[in-house]
């Protein structure tokens, strides 16, 4: 069975969630990848190791315009005859997959957390991570958008064939005027490890406690809503019901009480570590590991321990 995967290759490296999507698709059928953008053929051929047989690359346009990408993926779906199309459910997947669903009359499973079961249903997160639902697609074609960090990329195969391809992407109606990317940050939705701070850290001047640990781990940084609302940290770091929802392998929360609206954004993390002076803080109920203690003392110790560990491994 032919499966098509869209990946984003518009930055100078291919992100981990692209490898996840290809690995995922390879568990369903024979994988063709379709992409546009900058990645060179050598980088694209690497996708073969994760299970892609073939990579179709449209070099006629760059960028992430959802109308152009939709047309390109639809063209590729037609030429490969794929009945299943896989996206990563990142910000691009969330904009493109629904469009494509209408264009191809293909039911969309958004936020899949696992490969389809034998009965064809796919698990997704619902109620902000408080439950799972199993979705059945009623149409002949289906689109699955995989929640980032739900499965691990598996590299084993050999390089894929890379072919130039014309996706009939057409024109864009949206002009990009400016892009602001904070320097050096690890983008939150894709970060595998995240260190996060709350009001317990008292003020922005103490944030080096968080960023030092994040740097030692190679982690992204996040915060609770009041922290962003007080402008201690930028808004894009705010996680929770009204902020970003993340699903990293490790979430370390220091000085955060664990209000339900905060948990809604982080309870899909694989492992949660909570550092809080108050042993009654609700966050401990959602935690795997807890440290009852003062973040001002615990964080520097943890940072040192991580550095020591990294130096000896």
């Amino acid at each position: 069975m032919s499966v098509l995967v869209y990946i984003n290759s518009n930055s100078d490296k291919i992100a981990k969630n692209a490898f996840e999507a290809v690995t995922y698709a390879s568990k369903i059928g024979d994988v063709t990848v379709v992409t546009n953008g900058k990645a060179d053929d050598t980088m694209l051929a690497e996708l073969g190791k994760y299970g892609a047989n073939k990579v179709l690359v449209d070099r006629s346009f760059e960028g992430i315009d959802e109308q152009q990408i939709t047309r390109m993926v639809a063209t590729a779906a037609e030429s490969t005859g794929a009945k299943t199309i896989v996206f990563s459910n990142d910000l691009i997947g969330k904009a493109v997959a629904p469009r494509l669903s209408v264009k191809l009359n293909a039911g969309l499973v958004a936020g899949a957390t696992d490969v389809p079961k034998e009965d064809g249903t796919v698990a997704v997160n619902v109620f902000s991570g408080k439950a799972h639902g199993f979705v059945k697609v009623n149409t002949e074609k289906q689109i699955i958008a995989l929640l980032p960090n739900s499965i691990q990329p598996e590299a084993s195969g050999s390089e894929a064939n890379v072919e130039e391809f014309s996706g009939n992407a057409g024109e864009t109606k949206v002009k990009v005027k400016d892009i602001k990317k904070p320097e050096g940050d690890i983008p939150l939705p894709e970060a595998e490890l995240v260190v996060s701070g709350g009001r317990g850290l008292k003020g922005p001047e103490n944030w080096n406690l968080i960023t030092d640990l994040a740097e030692a781990l190679g982690a992204g940084t996040a915060c609770s809503r009041p922290v962003a609302d007080s402008d201690w940290r930028p808004h894009h770091e705010h996680v929770g019901q009204t902020g970003v929802a993340i699903s990293p392998n490790l979430y370390i929360a220091a000085g955060i009480s664990g209000a339900i609206q905060h948990l809604a954004g982080v309870n899909r993390s694989k492992v949660i570590v909570v550092i809080n002076t108050d042993e009654e803080a609700p966050f401990f109920k959602a935690a795997d590991y807890g440290v009852v203690g003062d973040a001002f003392e615990v964080l520097p110790k943890l940072t040192e321990a991580v550095k020591k560990f990294k130096a000896s491994n």
Binding site: S101, N105, A106, G107, L108, V109, T121, V126, G129, K130, A131, H132, G133, F134, V135, K136, V137, N138, T139, V273, V274, F284, K285, A286, A287, D288, Y289, G290, V291, V292, G293, D294, E297, V298, K301, L302, E304, A305, K308, F309
Partner: peptide
């Protein structure tokens, strides 16, 4: 185009493992 055929609650989380604040090497 799609139907939710079943729901499930996540497996209950096992109790938090508490670590001595002075022993971050253990964590």
């Amino acid at each position: 185009q799609t139907t939710f055929v079943k729901y499930a609650l996540p497996a209950p989380k096992s109790a938090v493992k508490l670590i001595d604040p002075n022993n971050m090497d253990e964590l």
